[in-house]
């Protein structure tokens, strides 16, 4: 077997092997059981005392939703203020980085508060060390913690017998940060530090190259930020080219570690669901469905990247290692493709190669991952999106066999399905209306030259940008001049709605289900931990994505593919 493919297989196997024990641990944290990290309790108590929050007070779904909104308003305000005034702060800015413009600061603050990390600035020239650490680094923890805590509330709602109490958001949020994200990030950051990722407050270095030219080499406190950016499915790069930069991702070993880190927590949360509800068979079915949704796009991507580009073959250039243009030369096309699929399926958004350069159908697969946005997905929110599809699948399956839809002993009624269905169509609505608006504007104003590529590829760039924003992914197809008033504001708006409504909705559904009486499984119960139900759920996800997005895919990457392979 091709050694590159062995590398891909190795990364996937290591991730799955680590995800199950981590899931068991996460479940124990959510349940408040004893764990190895109980020594964090005094720190947590101190933070709660300072914040005057009672972490044990019961909260219904609305109180939890308000708590989540209030916290996130604070995160946004903190970020936008610092981004605007970073040049005035007298410390941790040795490279004298200036403040951002208002719309860029708005976009960046929204982007990091919503766990999207779409970047319309370059890390080297757009953010001081203070901003990188105390805005971006901080928000990468707390935005990931927000998603995990929201998921924990839903777990509680699904497992409760009959209550309005979903748990305490503040408590779950803080524990997600201190007991899940922080320890893992410390381990990965130390590993990256030893592998060559810098962690310094010194200014950029000026060196003389072998040709005798002078060159500035950007550096900074990168290691801790790179660690949490991968683990928290954030993706915001310390440097402009993200994980294609040799300081962010120095070698093949770090590439393995970071790729594992991208997939680890989203996979572990599926197992955490099984351990929490003591339904491991159901967790494995969900894991299987998600894995199937991940492996199909990966297979298509690997096929096209490893077989080279016919346009290059036509020029008489051999491509024995596959299609290398835009792929990371140090890692090869297979590792770049695996990363591209991992980062888009998990809503991470970091890149180790240029997605703009992927073969057209590989680019389409990256977009498909973000269209579905529920196969593992972002930490916490990926499973919440899958939960919405499960609700609809239970409803459809129930109708098909003529039984009252019921899941985990709770009756699924029209109101839950209404919320789930509305949220499922929100994502296509945001993506398609944004793409339509930008396409209309660029045809109307030919002097608004934000496209570097005309035709199908240019359309794909705009489609990708809105898809990335709505899926809270953050990666870019690039080739798009995106630091403009239109792109900053429109993507900011899409990110806000694409983040918070799909968190609030599942909380509401969980609150509704928690308040219902739990009925024991009987012969009339739809078996949701069966292969058939898994396939129905998979079909619902695929049909929704295909019906919503196939027309735009034909106008972008599919049209480009056909022009390459006539």
């Amino acid at each position: 077997m091709n050694t590159e493919l062995i590398g891909v297989l190795f990364i996937l196997l290591v991730t799955v092997a680590l995800a199950s024990p981590l899931g068991r641990y996460v479940s124990r944290v959510f349940k408040g059981e004893r764990t190895l990290l109980d020594f964090m309790a005094p720190l947590e108590r101190f933070i709660f005392r300072m914040s005057r929050i009672d972490p044990n007070s019961p909260m219904d779904w609305k109180q939890n939703a308000w708590a989540m909104i209030k916290l996130n308003v604070f995160f946004f305000a903190w970020a936008i203020i610092i981004l605007l005034v970073q040049s005035w702060l007298p410390f941790w800015n040795p490279n004298h980085i200036g403040g951002m413009s208002l719309t860029q600061a708005f976009h960046t603050a929204v982007s990091f508060a919503t766990n999207t990390n779409q970047q319309h600035y370059l890390g080297e020239t757009g953010a001081s060390y203070f901003t990188q650490l105390l805005v971006f680094g901080y928000l990468q923890f707390v935005s990931a913690g927000t998603g995990i805590a929201a998921l924990a509330l839903v777990f509680k709602g699904l497992s409760s017998k009959q209550t309005t109490d979903l748990g305490n958001f503040y408590n779950l949020f803080l524990k997600s940060c201190t007991r899940i994200l922080l320890p893992l990030a410390i381990i990965l950051a130390i590993f990256l530090l030893f592998m060559g990722t810098p962690d310094t407050f010194q200014a950029n270095a000026t060196i003389t190259t072998l040709e005798g030219h002078t060159q500035t080499v950007a550096t900074g406190p990168a290691a801790p930020m790179v660690a949490i950016k991968q683990l928290g499915t954030n993706g915001g790069g310390f440097f402009g080219v993200n994980s294609a930069h040799p300081f962010e991702n120095p070698n093949y070993v770090t590439n393995i570690a970071e790729n594992v880190a991208i997939l680890l927590i989203p996979m572990a949360l599926v197992f955490a669901f099984g351990f929490y509800l003591e339904r491991m068979k159901l967790a494995w079915i969900i894991f299987g469905v998600m894995m199937l949704g991940f492996l199909i796009p990966l297979g298509v991507g690997l096929h096209y990247e490893l077989h080279g580009n016919p346009a290059i073959t036509k020029m008489g250039v051999q491509q024995p290692t596959g299609y290398m243009e835009g792929n990371e030369v140090r890692f090869g096309p297979a590792a770049t493709t695996l990363w591209a699929m991992s980062t888009t399926t998990t809503s991470n958004g970091s890149v180790n190669g240029m997605h703009d350069s992927l073969m057209p159908l590989t680019g389409a697969m990256a977009m498909l991952n973000m269209f579905m946005n529920c196969n593992f997905g972002g930490v916490g929110v990926g499973f919440l999106n899958f939960f919405l599809f499960l609700i609809v699948a239970v409803f459809i399956a129930g109708l098909m066999i003529g039984r009252t839809p019921e899941w985990l002993g709770k009756k699924i009624e029209g109101r839950e399905v209404t919320i789930a269905a509305l949220l499922i169509i929100l994502h296509p609505l945001l993506v398609l209306s944004g793409t339509a608006l930008s396409t209309w504007l660029i045809t109307l104003h030919s002097n608004w030259d934000w496209l570097n590529n005309p035709g199908f590829h240019g359309f794909s760039e705009m489609l990708y940008e809105f898809t990335s924003a709505s899926a809270n992914n953050g990666s870019g197809f690039e080739g798009l001049i995106d630091n403009t008033v239109f792109w900053n504001l429109s993507c900011g708006f899409v990110m806000l709605l694409g983040r918070y409504l799909p968190i609030i909705g599942p909380m509401a559904i969980a609150g509704s289900l928690a308040s219902k009486k739990k009925t024991p499984d009987s012969a009339g119960t739809l078996p949701s931990d069966s292969l058939a139900f898994g396939l129905i759920t998979f079909a619902v996800i695929v049909f929704v994505a295909a019906l919503s997005f196939f027309p735009v895919l034909t106008m972008g990457p599919i049209a480009e593919h056909v022009s390459l392979f006539p």
Binding site: K62, W66, I69, L102, T103, F106, L489, F493, L496
Partner: peptide, 30 residues
């Protein structure tokens, strides 16, 4: 003008997010 556009976008997003809590609650109470 840019300030106005930014504030409008932010305000509209906040209205929709905050409104969604009430909206979902109304759906559940139907």
């Amino acid at each position: 003008m840019t300030i106005l556009y930014t504030l409008l976008v932010l305000a509209w997003a906040i209205v929709l997010i905050v409104g969604s809590v009430t909206f979902f609650d109304k759906i559940l109470k139907r």
